[in-house]
Amino acid sequence: MSPLGELFHQELRVINLGLEYFAEEIERLGVPVIHVAWSPPAGGDPKKAALLAALADEDEDDA
């Protein structure tokens, strides 16, 4: 059996990223789930995300 197939024969423990609705549905089915509130940087705006990345690099230079 493939590793992925084995996974579904074990007790499921789920980490859900992003849309909270998915976590709520899994929880409703009695499966333990940890929801991580996450969204793309700057709401997904690539120009702003690039600017943030450039400024974050400056931050790391000093670390």
């Binding site: 400056e58 931050d59 000093d62």
Partner: peptide
């Protein structure tokens, strides 16, 4: 000055 140092 780096951003990190300036912010500190």
């Amino acid at each position: 000055m780096s951003i990190k140092t300036a912010n500190q």
